[in-house]
């Protein structure tokens, strides 16, 4: 069975539609949610009273160690009032927030102890310590790791098929089913992922080198 370019050009607009309307949308919005929520979790685990912090740690580990597909289906049925795409965005945001919280935690831990002591010596308020001294140093080191999670989320978006959201891959399957021909569409979907994710990961590697160089 030979490669047929007609199927590529035929299906491309359909795949790109799924790519823009679901894959990109979910990646961007969920990343924003995960980045903010992850930071809040990381700060809460350091500042909340011990029992609350312990409970939070357990919840975070539980979410991290169970499959996102199961969480998607669970949330889909639990929040039937919301549409599937919204549920997907929220679940991706919360799931990846638990990963990003670990990254932030490592970043905060990497700020030298002397910085904390210096803010005490300067009698800075707690909020000012976090905002003006700790976070600027902590976040810089975390940027590459956060970027890698965004790429990983991007590649996980086809899991949304489990809750009937029509992303690029499910469009590819639909096209394949209609034409009894999966070869070109699946490969095309893979290539589109590669085109988007590979340059991004190269850029992140460059950023990593630059941060390593300047610190």
């Amino acid at each position: 069975m030979s490669w047929n370019w007609d199927h590529v050009w035929d299906s491309l607009p359909f795949l790109l539609e799924g790519f823009v309307q679901v894959t990109l949308l979910v990646t961007v919005v969920s990343s924003a949610i995960a980045a903010v929520l992850g930071l809040l979790i990381a700060i809460a685990r350091r500042t909340a009273p011990a029992p609350i912090a312990a409970l939070l740690t357990f919840v975070v580990n539980f979410i991290r160690m169970t499959p996102i597909v199961v969480q998607l289906v669970f949330a889909y049925f639990a929040f039937l009032a919301l549409d599937a795409l919204t549920v997907g965005i929220l679940v991706f945001g919360v799931h990846y927030a638990t990963y990003m919280a670990e990254v932030y935690r490592a970043g905060i831990d990497s700020v030298p102890k002397g910085q904390w002591e210096a803010t005490t010596a300067l009698s800075m308020s707690r909020s000012r310590t976090w905002r003006a001294v700790i976070m600027p140093q902590a976040i810089r080191a975390t940027l590459p790791a956060l970027g890698n999670y965004v790429i990983s989320m991007f590649k996980d978006t086809p899991f949304l098929i489990a809750i009937t959201v029509a992303d690029m891959v499910s469009n590819a399957l639909e096209y394949g089913g209609d034409h009894f021909r999966y070869v070109e569409v699946i490969v095309l979907a893979g290539v589109l992922f590669l085109i988007a994710s590979y340059p991004t990961s190269l850029a992140i590697r460059k950023l990593e080198e630059r941060i390593a160089f300047t610190t």
């Binding site: 086809p158 891959v169 490969v187």
Partner: peptide
Amino acid sequence: IEFFRGTSLVVQLYLFFFVLPQLG
């Protein structure tokens, strides 16, 4: 390495399940 890291797991699953049988 970059091929299998850069394309989605789901795409690869379908690649082995749908595409390879069509190629024999």
